[in-house]
Amino acid sequence: MTATEAVAGGEDELQRHFDATIDHDQRVEPRDWMPDGYRGTLVRQIAQHAHSEIIGMQPEANWITRAPSLRRKAILLAKVQDEAGHGLYLYSATETLGVDRTDLTDKLVEGRQKYSSIFNYPTLNFADIGVIGWLVDGAAIVNQVPLCRCSYGPYARAMIRVCKEESFHQRQGYELLLTMMSGTDEQRRMVQDATDRWWWPSLMMFGPPDGDSPNTRQSMAWGIKRHTNDELRQKFVDMTVPQAETLGVTLPDPGLAWNSERGHHDFGEPDWDEFKRVLHGNGPCNAQRVERRRAAREDGQWVRDAAAAYAAKQADRERGAAV
C-alpha cells in the first residue's frame, strides 16, 4: 500500500501503514505520514545531536591557535570544520521534519534544548585534544553507528557520513596520544591527566542507566534507537580497555576488571549526581559554552541582516530589469 492509498483510509490506516514500515525495518521518509510523538522525538534527538556538534567545536577550537605543530594545527582545524559540517547536515535533517534551524538555535541559546553534557568540561592540556578524539569521538561512534540503521531515512543517511568522518577523527586523536606517549615524561603525564579527567564523562555520554532512562523503550519500538544505554556503555568499555593498554595509560577505575563469566569487563558506576548537575546547567563550562554561541548569534546579526537586505535589493533589481 502506498502512503496515498493510506490517506484515503484515515488516521488508523496511516498508523497501520507507519507501523508496518517500522515492523519491516523500512525507512520513513519526510513526506510519509508519521505520528506526532515520533516526529517530536526525532526533532528533539536530531536537534540535540546538531547542537552537540556545534557546541562540541568549542573545547577543541580552544587549542587551534596554540597547537604545538603545524600538522597538528591543520588536523585540528580540519576536524573542527568537519564538526560545523556535521551540524549543518543534522540541522538540514531536522528541516525535513518541518522545523527551522533558526528556531533551534534560539532554543539552544535559551537553554530550552540540550546538547551532549560532555562538552561542558574544559580542555586543559593538549592531550585533551587526543583524548577527545579517542574517548569522546569513540563513544559518539558507538552511539551513532546503530543510528545509521535508524528508521528515519534522512537521519540514517546523515549518520553514515558523520560516522565515516568521526572515525577519521578518532584515529587522529589516538595517533596523537600514541605520539605523545612515545615522547617526554611530561607528555606522558599530560596524556594520563587528560584520560583521568575524560574517562567518566565519556561513560556518561551513553545516558543514564537503563532503569532511569524514560525514553528508551518508545525510541526502540520506533526503530530510532537500536540498543539500550547500558548495552552501548558496556560495548564501549570492552573496546576501550585494550586500547588503553596499547597506549600505556591507566583508566581511572579501580573496579575495572575482566569478568570471564559474563565475557565482558566489569566497571564502576559513574557519578550520576555529577551527570545530573552538568545536565542541569551546572558543569564547569555550561555558561561559557552557551554564552559563546549566543554571542556569535548576536554579534553576527548585522551580517545576516546585510545579507538579507542585499538579497532583497538584488531581487528588486532583477524584477526591475525584467519589466
Partner: peptide, 8 residues
C-alpha cells in the same frame, strides 16, 4: 572559529 555569524 566558533564565532561566525552563520555555520556556512
Amino acid at each position: 572559529c566558533t564565532r561566525a555569524h552563520e555555520l556556512e
